[in-house]
Simulated scan of single mutants.
Amino acid sequence: MDTITHTLFGLTMYAAIDKRNCSPHEKRALFVTAVGGSQIPDIDIVSALWDTGGRYQMWHRGLTHSVFLVPVWAALLVALNWLLFKVGGWRLFGLGVLAVLIHDTSDLFNAWGTGYLEPFSPMRITFGTIPIVDFMLWAIMIGGLLYVKLRKPLKAYRVYRIVGLLLLCHFLVQSLQGYVLHQQYGSQYDQLALSAGFIPGQFQLIGKKDGKVEISAATVFTQPKLQATLESKDQTDLSLLFAKNPKARTLHEWAPFVVIVDDGKQLAIYDPRFYRKGQQSFLYEFMDK
C-alpha cells in the first residue's frame, strides 16, 4: 500500500485502543508503536542510496517485509519506547506485532507484492486484488473519523474497531472476487495475474499463453472485455540484455511474467500488469541494439 494508507492504518489502530486508564507516557508509547509499526517495514527505501547492481526492485518490499521479521521490528519499537518514555511490556509488543503484520500482509494484496517469506524464499507473493492506492480504504477510515468528530460518542474507540472490521471486509470481498475470476479464467492461460482497479469490484486480467499476453477488464458479473493484446518474443536470448542492464535481470526475477520486445532497435522486457493505454509499463528495462 502507499504511505498514506499505512499511516491511516496506524492512526486507526491507535484510535481503536481504550486509553482511558493510560498515562500520558503510555499514550505516547502506544502512538509511536501503532504508527511506527505501520511504517517501519518501508525503511528499505534507503537501500536505493547504495544500489549499484540494479537490485533495488528486489530489496524494496523484500526482507524488511518478511513475516519472520515481524517480532524483530516489534521488539525494536518496544526498546525505542523504553528509551523515550520508560514504557514497555507485552501490550506494546503485541501492538507492534499487529501493526507490522498489517503492513506486511496488506502489501500482499496489490500488484507489487512482497517478499513475505524471505529469506527462505525469494518469491514475490502478490494477489492483485487491492490497488496500491485504494480510495475505498481511505473513505472507510476518514468516514470513521468524521463520525467521531460530528457525533462525539462516549466510547469512540469502539467506532474505530468497527472501522477495522469494515476494512477487513473490504479486503475479503475484493479477494473473494479475485479468486472467483482466477478460477473462471485461469485455465485459459499458461499464466494469469490480476490487477485491481480503483473502483471496487473492477479488475484487469493479464493472461499469457504461447507468447501472447491478453489484458482484459473484468468483474465477477460481466464477461472480460479485451483491452490489449501484446506479443512477447519468448524465444529471445536475454543474456546480453541482463549483462548490459542488470535491472532487467531483476525485473525478470521479480515479475510473475514479462513481455519480451525484440524489434531490431531495442531488446527489452516489461511487466504487462502495469501496461496502460498503449504505453509500455513503467517497469520497462531495455538496451539499444
Score class of each variant (00 low, 15 high):
212 K>H: 03
203 F>Q: 00
246 P>A: 09
68 F>H: 06
81 N>H: 01
203 F>M: 09
196 A>N: 08
175 S>C: 06
180 V>M: 15
248 A>P: 00
257 F>E: 05
62 G>V: 02
21 N>H: 13
179 Y>G: 02
83 L>A: 15
155 K>N: 11
64 T>Y: 00
253 E>Y: 07
171 F>K: 13
240 L>N: 09
246 P>R: 03
277 K>P: 04
214 E>D: 09
251 L>E: 01
230 L>V: 00
52 T>Y: 12
204 Q>T: 03
211 G>I: 04
113 G>H: 08
174 Q>G: 10
186 G>L: 14
51 D>L: 14
127 F>M: 15
172 L>K: 02
180 V>F: 14
202 Q>H: 15
95 L>K: 05
240 L>T: 13
147 Y>E: 03
177 Q>F: 03
58 M>V: 01
105 T>Q: 04
119 P>D: 08
111 A>Q: 09
254 W>M: 10
55 R>Y: 01
61 R>P: 07
56 Y>Q: 02
185 Y>L: 13
260 I>C: 13
283 L>Y: 06
170 H>M: 14
178 G>F: 03
13 M>T: 04
39 Q>M: 14
284 Y>E: 01
272 P>M: 04
273 R>E: 04
288 D>R: 14
165 L>H: 05
128 G>W: 04
44 D>N: 09
133 V>K: 02
33 T>R: 07
46 V>E: 07
146 L>A: 15
167 L>F: 03
24 P>A: 08
76 L>C: 13
27 K>M: 12
192 L>Q: 03
78 V>A: 06
126 T>P: 01
113 G>W: 04
243 A>Y: 02
257 F>Y: 13
261 V>T: 07
215 I>V: 10
254 W>H: 15
146 L>K: 11
98 L>F: 11
5 T>N: 05
191 Q>L: 14
215 I>Y: 00
191 Q>S: 04
109 F>W: 08
271 D>T: 01
94 G>H: 07
138 W>K: 06
188 Q>E: 04
193 A>P: 06
241 L>E: 10
141 M>F: 01
194 L>G: 04
103 H>C: 03
142 I>Q: 10
195 S>V: 11
185 Y>G: 11
140 I>F: 11
153 P>Y: 14
21 N>Y: 14
183 Q>D: 06
72 V>A: 12
11 L>D: 02
230 L>Q: 05
43 I>T: 09
193 A>G: 05
137 L>A: 02
241 L>V: 06
244 K>Q: 15
201 G>N: 04
273 R>V: 06
258 V>T: 07
51 D>M: 12
130 I>G: 05
282 F>L: 12
174 Q>V: 05
104 D>T: 10
172 L>P: 03
37 G>P: 07
71 P>W: 01
35 V>C: 09
76 L>G: 13
76 L>K: 00
274 F>G: 01
130 I>N: 02
